Computed example of a mutant assay.
Amino acid sequence: MDTVAIGAKGISVSLDLAVGHIAGMEVEAGGRVLKPLHRAPWIGEPRESLPENLPEGTLRLSGDFLCAPFSTSDVEEAPLHGWPANSPWDVVEDGAIAGGRRAVFRLRRKVMGATVDKIFTLRDGHPFLYQEHVFSGGSGAISVAHHPMTAMREGGRLAFSPKRLAATPDTSLEPDPARGRTRLAYPARAADLTHFPIAAGGTTDLTDYRMEDQREDFVTLVEADHGGPGWTAIARRAEQDLVLVLKNPAELPVTMLWFSNGGRDYAPWSGRHLGVLGIEDGRAAMGHAASLGDNWLKHEGVATAFALAEGRSVSFRHVIGAVPSADVEPPRGIETARDRMSILAIDGTARNIPFDGEFLRIGRSVLA
């Protein structure tokens, strides 16, 4: 696998240049090495043993990657989640900065005529990967999303920044029971994430990831207007850590959750993709054409694409991190300041860790 690794004190990240997926991320903390991101179990298996029609991004599914567009590429021809998730990137810059390291990668292909750069920044002593993507030039509009995935051996509990609502699409990911199974109702919506409708009747708690629920489900969370960064926190039971994913809601107004827990019976999934949660912060509806056209999110006042234009650049930022935690419950809140993050526990105590609070500055223009 053609990967490049960068590191700073206490953290390292590697990128699979063939498809732009993060191949690995390690955080050293508390005498442990945390690995917050997931890699598909079929990576490294002989190509001839896997279905012929799989996109490269599915064959090498790992970590986090840029979707542009998110889901179906039905405006400009490209595989699922677009060329940024399925084709090569080049290293255009890699070097030390004050207190850390910075690397810039460029997609060999263009997206809607735009040049796409991926920027990684690591800071000494910070348990976070700071990412930025920049689209320069182009025309039309593009939907985008990050696609970080974590995996849990024994499930876990989730917490979020305030959300306005949760909704499933019209059709489930696996409508054919001969191929897979889902648990949530489609379509459905709820304002209370702990009481979301299920297909069998009644409700389920979206904040509780239970391993006994074998399913393949997808639900979109719409950020509420709260004035701070958007965040997702996953308290992984067996791993005894807290995985943290943050965004600027003005740039990425929705968080799409992908529950993938043995819910697909066909190759390469084959019932072995277990305990995986995708935390897909985006500016998108399901599919490029749907994102550009009329869709339910627009009716809610939510943007679902970035406009592109020659002579202009569009950028958006994202953060992924992890810290040790023996607490089986996620935090009740997260607050950020210029140089730190405060993780607020259920019992009212606060834990402070190093964080670049300026990186996701709310109100920062998305036009570079």
Rank of each mutant, 00 (worst) to 15 (best):
L184T: 11
A185G: 04
A185T: 03
Y186T: 13
Y186V: 14
P187H: 15
P187K: 15
R189W: 10
A191I: 03
D192P: 03
D192R: 11
T194M: 13
H195V: 03
F196C: 02
I198K: 13
I198S: 02
I198H: 04
A199I: 10
G202V: 08
T203G: 01
L206S: 06
T207H: 06
T207Y: 04
T207L: 10
T207K: 11
Y209F: 14
M211V: 14
E212C: 02
E212D: 12
D213G: 04
D213K: 09
E216M: 13
E216C: 12
T220G: 00
T220C: 06
L221C: 04
L221G: 09
E223C: 05
A224L: 00
D225S: 10
D225K: 07
H226Q: 06
G227Y: 01
G228N: 13
P229E: 01
G230T: 01
W231K: 03
W231Y: 08
W231T: 05
T232Q: 02
A233F: 04
A235R: 09
A235N: 12
A235S: 15
A235I: 13
A235C: 14
R236G: 04
A238W: 04
A238I: 05
A238M: 02
E239P: 03
E239R: 03
D241C: 03
L242D: 00
L242A: 00
L242E: 00
L244F: 06
L244T: 08
V245C: 11
L246I: 05
L246M: 14
K247C: 07
K247Q: 07
N248T: 06
P249L: 12
A250G: 11
A250H: 04
A250M: 03
E251G: 00
L252H: 01
P253T: 05
P253R: 06
V254R: 05
V254Y: 08
T255V: 11
M256L: 06
F259G: 00
S260L: 06
N261C: 08
N261S: 09
N261R: 11
G263E: 09
G263R: 11
R264M: 12
R264N: 12
D265R: 13
D265C: 08
Y266C: 06
Y266E: 12
P268A: 14
W269T: 15
W269L: 14
S270H: 01
S270L: 09
G271A: 00
R272G: 10
H273L: 13
G275Y: 09
G275M: 04
V276M: 12
V276D: 09
I279W: 05
I279D: 03
D281L: 09
D281M: 12
D281H: 14
A284K: 02
A285D: 02
H288F: 08
H288L: 04
A289L: 14
A290N: 05
A290S: 05
S291L: 14
G293S: 12
